[in-house]
Amino acid sequence: MARRLSSALVVLAVASALSALAVGRAGVPWFGPDGEALLVEGLTVLAILSAAFGSYWLVLAYLASHAVDKRRRHDARNVLRLAFGIVATVATLGALTDQWVGMLVSLGVVGFAITFALQQPLFSLIGWFYILVNRPYQVGDRIAIEDTRGDVVSIGFFVTEVWEIDGELVSTNQPSGRIITVPNSGVLSSHVVNFYGEGVPYVWNELSVQVAYETDLDFATDVMIDVADDHLGEEMAREIAKYRDRLAETPVELDVVEEPTVNVRQAESWVELRLRYLVHPRRGTRARNAMYEAILRRFNDNPDRVGFPVSRSR
């Protein structure tokens, strides 16, 4: 559909340009001088707009047919929209005024005035360029920016649309169904957290279980690691290799283990066992629930080795 539309617009642009050229040379007697000039300008504007929109849709159709991923196609669409829009606007004004230099000077003066009148939109446009070049996040990434947390749906010239996660309506990393609009200028003045990371779309999570002091800690930690291995072992080992490769490209030195680990923390009336593992952020809650149920089931099957805290002072 896009290819047929773009082809039709290109044909219309060529036909309009040829018609404008023919009218300008041969003239149309029954139109008169003023009518001929107006007809030429109209055909020229039609040719410019048709060529701009036709070329825009033709490039988009080319990108879609050559298996370009959604993220790159989204960025390309915004860049092309801006580029073709500017070219079409300048060409149209030049055709109508027939004074290219004066028109460009006027646009510069108007742009200078707009800079002071519309500072926030301008900062958002600069933020869009920053996002496009430095890639703090892309479409599809899960981010946290200012007070917003969610999945990036689209990145426009001035705002980023985020499919909200958590928020006021739900919790535990679940989508609320609301779309939140965040000004692009936020990336220039706020912390941006990208849960996918460049090249490693996995994050570290923890699962916490509280047990009594009488618990056999070696047994309890072994159970938690076994359960994590059953659910995430192969996937985690595979992604850890990518994680290490990514770290090797930076000056950061971390001791990254290939298997889930358990950290022990002492509290007043219980011992807290924190299972640490690597998981995809979209599956974090589901994986935690499944492992928590399996761990509790194993603990309850061994009441002589695992106890749970009761209300008391220690």
Rank of each mutant, 00 (worst) to 15 (best):
A212F: 01
M103G: 14
L217T: 10
R297L: 12
G108A: 15
L217S: 01
D218S: 13
V109E: 08
L12N: 02
E249N: 08
L18I: 09
A294M: 11
E214C: 10
L5W: 07
E249T: 14
V90A: 07
S269C: 00
I295H: 05
L63T: 02
V101Y: 11
F299Y: 12
W30I: 09
L5C: 00
V159P: 07
E41I: 14
R246K: 10
I155R: 09
D222H: 12
H231K: 14
V170R: 04
F31I: 09
V28G: 11
S55F: 10
R274E: 07
I126L: 13
V79P: 03
W163Y: 13
A61W: 08
T221I: 01
E36Q: 11
A91I: 06
G94F: 02
L188C: 09
P281L: 08
A95L: 06
Q99H: 15
N205E: 13
H74P: 03
P281N: 01
S154T: 12
F123H: 04
G94L: 02
Q138P: 00
V262C: 03
V200G: 08
R288E: 04
A20H: 03
R135H: 13
A83G: 12
L217Q: 02
A61P: 00
G307Q: 09
A61V: 00
F195I: 00
R77F: 00
G156K: 10
T285C: 03
F158L: 13
E249S: 14
H74E: 09
Y137R: 05
S6V: 01
V28R: 08
T172G: 10
D166G: 06
Y213R: 11
A212P: 04
V23Q: 00
P136D: 10
I155M: 08
V45F: 06
W128K: 10
L132C: 02
Y196K: 06
S269R: 11
S124P: 04
H231G: 04
Y243E: 11
